[in-house]
Design a protein around this nucleic acid. Sequence first.
DNA 1: CCAGTCAACAAGGCCT
DNA 2: AGGCCTTGTTGACTGG
Length: 279
Amino acid sequence: MDLDGRCNTGLVLGLGFTAINNDQNPSKPIIPKKPQPPPSEPSLTLSLSGDFYHGVAAKKSGVIDVNKGFEDAAAVVTAHHDVYRQGSPPHSVVSSFSSGRIKRERDLSCEEAEVERVSSRVSDEDEDAVNARKKLRLTKDQSALLEESFKQHSTLNPKQKLALARQLNLRPRQVEVWFQNRRARTKLKQTEVDCEFLKKCCESLTDENRRLQKELSDLKALKLAQPFYMQLPAATLTMCPSCERIGGVGDGASNKPSYSMAAKPTHCYNPFANSAATC
DNA sequence: CCAGTCAACAAGGCCT
DNA sequence: AGGCCTTGTTGACTGG
């Protein structure tokens, strides 16, 4: 996202974020290396009203949960052909195995063997024709266990992979691929969340920039409208940027005018602070 | 291991 | 109700 491009109003607002987890490869876009809790990622020092970031994250995770529910339901339906397929890889899989890249056959459990026996009533050619278009769907239990394992460690060492594969009755390669996909998709989702977050930040800063530009032009107009003798030390005039009242050391009870000439402005305006609190 | 991609599959919407 | 199309998900592969 091009923040400068979208906030091209000329004021420097000091967007104070640093590269997010980008120390390893600065040339890469702002993408966290590993999924982390959202608040710790974009290190923007901008205070925003509402916790939309969490909201987005929650929404996203909600989507995941919904899909998981769908997966759960689908897994029940497809459990049969999962086992069937795992026992009898389709042509494409077989060919890729036989090409020397992967040659792994999973041992069948008794139940799977039974299913395969039933399935094998179909002739080999018919079976190949049917299975060539089938796809493995993990069962509910398999998905749950993989998810649980992923929560503990998003990468697996060979030992863990083998153990998990044995536990799930899958090939180690399948476990490996599942983890690869899971990492990639987690990262993608996190990137989307980050992108939304930065968009909101950009919008917020653009609004702030617009507001400051207006204040600046108002101040200039006010300065021009003042009598000549009041313009002399104009730089020392202080004005609250929020209520646009000229303030200073004087008060209504004294003989001094409501505007005063202070040695320094009474406060520095912080664009990231709530301007309403400055009065 | 990652990024990119393909392809099977499920679900939803629309039309007849 | 059922067929078709679109879209999102996900298992698997490839190249770097």
